[in-house]
């Protein structure tokens, strides 16, 4: 069985920053496990700017921000595996990994840092009536299509939910020639950053319809349009306000949820409000020697804040390993 002092699950902004700070604290035996085929996590598809203002005092794109950390990992010769998905963690810190080419491997760790990030809320969580036609994607999936695969999800777009990814995709798809009809937000106020409303919607005259939601999805094979309705103060659709908007694509930007399958399997105490594991201020979970940081703990607005929190987790995990040795 492979043995490492510190195993970090996830090679995105949290995992990379945690690895870097643990190495700074003198931990030599570190392994990062990443399920994608490269390090960087979601930063790779976040090609917009706005990263690094706190950490590097300059404005970077997502891939540039990731590259700064990946360079550190490589300079410090921190080990990592890509195309390696963790499928189980035991309470005595054995990590089971499915690695491309190698198959199933088990790793014994002294300490573990959970840095799996988050995932998007799917359509199923919204209960919109209609068939299940093609053309409905989460905003992040559309972002992956455009920025990684280089293909467009559609031409006439409606975006439901005004989270930051939805706003950023409204601009991105407009730049690529799509007609973004509107962004509908059920709440009276957008959940996205004010700056994104300005530079992603107002710059391109894309209407933001507050207190509106999609009440029906039209189309059987491919989405043909949506019914948009106004909602009252109880968020209930107001009858008589229905408006049909033709579109071939509906993007959902309705929130993020920490990805905690592994944490739950491990039996960690979870926080109902954040949907992440309960952590101490040192970022240790209720299981001694298991730490967590970044969006797996709670969804952050900024990658810079993820890096900062992960740094703390890296330091705490290093202290745990060093104290054990004494």
């Amino acid at each position: 069985m492979l043995q490492y002092d510190l195993v970090i699950i996830g090679g995105g902004p949290a995992g990379l920053s945690a690895a870097d700070s643990a190495r700074e604290m003198g931990i030599k035996s570190i392994l990062i496990l990443e399920r994608d085929n490269k390090l960087g996590g979601i930063l790779n598809q976040c090609i917009h700017t706005g990263f690094g203002l706190h950490t590097f005092k300059e404005e970077l794109t997502g891939p540039e921000y990731a590259a700064r950390y990946i360079d550190k990992i490589q300079e410090k010769e921190i080990e990592y595996k890509v195309s390696a998905m963790v499928i189980n963690i035991t309470r005595d810190k054995q990590v089971t990994v499915m690695e491309k080419g190698a198959g199933l491997i088990t790793i014994q760790a002294k300490a573990i840092i959970l840095a799996m990030g988050c995932r998007e809320r799917p359509r199923g969580a919204l209960n919109i009536p209609g068939y299940r036609p093609a053309g409905i994607y989460s905003a992040g999936t559309a972002q992956y299509f455009v920025n990684i695969e280089g293909v467009m999800p559609g031409k006439e777009i409606v975006i439901l939910g005004s989270g930051d990814i939805g706003l950023i995709m409204a601009r991105r798809l407009t730049l690529e020639g799509a007609d973004v009809k509107c962004v509908a937000e059920i709440m009276p106020k957008s959940g996205g950053l004010r700056r994104n409303i300005v530079q992603c919607l107002e710059d391109f005259d894309i209407p933001l319809k507050l207190s509106h939601t999609v009440t029906y999805i039209h189309g059987k094979e491919r989405i043909e349009g949506v019914t948009l309705s106004k909602v009252d103060e109880n968020l209930e659709p107001v009858s008589g306000t229905e408006e049909f908007i033709p579109c071939d694509t509906l993007l959902l930007s309705v929130g993020l949820i920490p990805e905690n399958e592994l944490s739950k399997k491990l039996g960690l105490s979870m926080d109902e409000r954040t949907k992440g594991p309960v952590v101490t201020k040192e970022m240790e979970t209720m299981l001694s020697g298991v730490f967590a940081c970044g969006n797996v703990v709670h969804v952050h607005d900024l990658a810079d804040n993820v890096s900062k929190e992960a740094k703390k987790a890296g330091i705490s995990a290093a202290r745990y390993i060093l104290e054990e040795k004494i």
């Binding site: 090609i47 700017t49 891939p63 455009v146 920025n147 990684i148 280089g150 991105r172």
Partner: peptide, 18 residues
């Protein structure tokens, strides 16, 4: 504004570059 987008890549391990 700063413009961010992608360009097509030939013979690359990725299809586009930021």
């Amino acid at each position: 504004r700063v413009l961010t987008t992608t360009v097509k890549v030939l013979f690359g391990t990725e299809k586009v570059a930021a």
